[in-house]
Computed example of a mutant assay.
Amino acid sequence: MVYLNTELGTNSYVNSSLKTSGTSMTNNNKTDSSSFQSALDGASDSDTSTIDPNIVEINKETDPDERSADLKLYQNLKRSGVNFSIQSFDDVKQGLVTFPPVSAPGKIRNAISNILDAEENQGANIGGQLLFNFQNFIGNTNSDLNSLDTYKEFGSYMSNSLDVLLKNGDISQSDYNVGQNITKQLQNLTL
Rank of each mutant, 00 (worst) to 15 (best):
S143T: 13
T31G: 06
K93A: 01
K152D: 10
L77Y: 07
D63L: 04
G95L: 07
N177S: 14
T141S: 15
D117P: 00
D63S: 08
S85Q: 11
T62I: 05
N11Y: 08
S103Q: 12
V97I: 13
K30D: 03
D63P: 02
M158T: 03
T190W: 05
N146M: 12
T190S: 15
T6N: 06
S143A: 15
I108N: 06
M25S: 12
S156A: 12
Q187T: 08
Q135Y: 06
Y74M: 00
L18K: 02
D32Q: 05
V164I: 14
F89C: 11
S33E: 13
G169E: 04
L145T: 14
G95R: 04
T62Q: 09
K19P: 04
D32R: 03
T150I: 03
F99M: 07
G22T: 03
N54K: 03
S143N: 13
L148H: 00
A104K: 01
S156H: 07
N133R: 04
I126C: 09
V97C: 07
T150F: 03
V102H: 05
S68Y: 10
R79L: 12
Q185N: 13
T141K: 11
T141Q: 14
L77I: 08
N177T: 14
D52Y: 02
L162N: 08
K167M: 12
S88K: 11
M25K: 06
Y151D: 01
N121A: 02
N133A: 06
N29T: 07
L130I: 05
I112H: 02
L189N: 04
D144P: 10
S85L: 13
Q129K: 11
T6H: 00
G128M: 05
A69I: 06
S113D: 15
S156D: 07
Q94Y: 06
A111R: 04
S68M: 08
D70M: 04
L191N: 11
N29K: 03
G42H: 09
Q173Y: 13
L186A: 09
D144F: 13
Y3A: 00
E61L: 15
I112A: 00
N142Q: 13
Q129E: 13
Q185F: 12
A69V: 07
Q122L: 13
P105G: 10
D144S: 13
S161I: 03
T190C: 05
N110T: 12
N125E: 02
D170P: 03
I108H: 05
S143F: 04
N114P: 09
N140K: 13
Q173K: 15
D45T: 15
P105W: 07
P100K: 10
A39P: 00
L73F: 04
A124D: 01
L130D: 04
D149V: 14
L162Y: 15
S88P: 11
Y74I: 02
E61V: 00
S38E: 13
K152W: 09
T20I: 10
D91H: 08
S113G: 15
